[in-house]
Design a protein around this nucleic acid. Structure first.
Length: 321
DNA sequence: AAAATTTGACCGAT
DNA sequence: ATCGGTCAAATTTT
């Protein structure tokens, strides 16, 4: 039971990063609140889209730093960079000599029985880790393995890109339920996709399920000032399965497309319309409800999420800050 | 029938 | 010998 091993090793550097991210997120929330309270004020400001993207990025980064235990045996300073999302390159300075299957190198290393070739170990690939409530990332994956991991309560699942053979895409990922937050999944990506993106969201994007995917609901936490966004009606069958029994159905969730931080990086805001709806209608207790829509960018993957946000999201006044 | 997943064996590294 | 990653046959799902 080595829970919370990180409680003793939160370095000052980590704290600084976490603080910085949280402050940034709070700042974005503040601006968003102002923007929604004064929808017709024409001050130079980031769009609501951009602010939401900033909030998401900040919180995700902070969570990532908190949750990644980073006791790199050889490096005392290896704290932050390995934890940060999109740290880019894999930091282990692996010279990677003789690791790739250079032609002719096949060296007859073939077991008599299995007849398998040697596996290609892939160091020096771009790797990064995300912590999310969903396992869906808008790429087509094929599961090729699952393994129990020592000292881990949950198994780890292995996926490769579905286009490994038809397009030669070598991206893989590993997904494991988080120990500390079992409702979340820790995904480590290896390599970037070279496969052509498939336009998969052409059909009616009407079902609005996964709003909760993007936020941790910190119900009982009294001193965290996370803006409470009440999501639209969720279909329960798409809820994440609570593991009352064993923990084996990692691949069950075919949910909506989450926002990838990489997507948000090149996000350019357009002009959403924010419409105050006045007093409440059916299922909220808020006294001021705004509707925010942006129909211009339906083609973008991450935009679907924002459209859901836009058409359906409700803000409860007074719960911000 | 084809595609995706499950699962135990195999492989390389430690 | 052990561990984590991968393969591939068997099985399930579409």
């Amino acid at each position: 039971m080595n829970f919370f091993p990180e409680s003793e090793s939160v370095s000052a550097q980590k704290k600084r990063v976490i603080l910085k991210e949280l402050v940034k997120g709070r700042e974005a929330a503040t601006q968003l609140k102002f923007l929604l309270q004064n929808p017709f004020r024409s001050e130079p400001s980031l769009s609501s889209h951009e602010l939401m993207a900033n909030m998401f990025t900040s919180f995700t980064n902070a969570l990532s730093v908190i949750n990644t235990s980073s006791v790199e045996p050889g490096s005392a300073d290896g704290v932050a960079h390995r934890d940060l999302l999109f740290s880019g390159v894999n930091l282990s300075p692996v010279p990677d000599s003789g690791n790739h299957p250079s032609p002719g190198d096949c060296s007859g290393k073939r077991s008599q029985k299995g007849g398998r070739g040697r596996y290609n170990r892939r160091r020096s690939e771009k790797t990064w880790t995300e912590l999310s409530c969903t396992t869906d990332d808008n790429h087509a994956w094929r599961k090729y393995g699952q393994k129990g991991i020592l000292n881990s309560e949950f198994p780890r699942s292995y996926f490769r890109c579905s286009h490994k053979y038809d397009q030669g895409c070598r991206a893989t990922k590993q997904v494991q339920q988080d120990e500390e937050y079992p409702e979340m999944y820790r995904t480590t990506y290896f390599g970037i996709h070279i496969c052509k993106a498939t336009p998969k969201i052409t059909h009616s994007a009407t079902d609005s399920s996964t709003w909760e995917s993007y936020f941790l609901n910190s119900d009982h936490d009294s001193n965290v000032q996370v803006p409470l966004i009440t999501p639209p009606i969720l279909t329960t069958d798409q809820e994440f399965p609570k593991e009352t029994h064993t923990s084996s159905d990692l691949t069950d969730h075919k949910l909506l497309d989450p926002i990838l931080l990489s997507d948000l990086k090149d996000f350019e805001p357009s002009n959403p319309t924010i419409v105050p709806l006045g007093k409440e209608s059916d299922n909220t207790t808020a006294d001021n409800v705004y509707s925010c829509t942006d129909s211009q960018r339906l083609d973008m993957d991450f935009e679907v999420a924002f459209v859901h946000f836009g058409t359906d999201f409700h803000f409860e006044e007074g719960q911000l800050l």
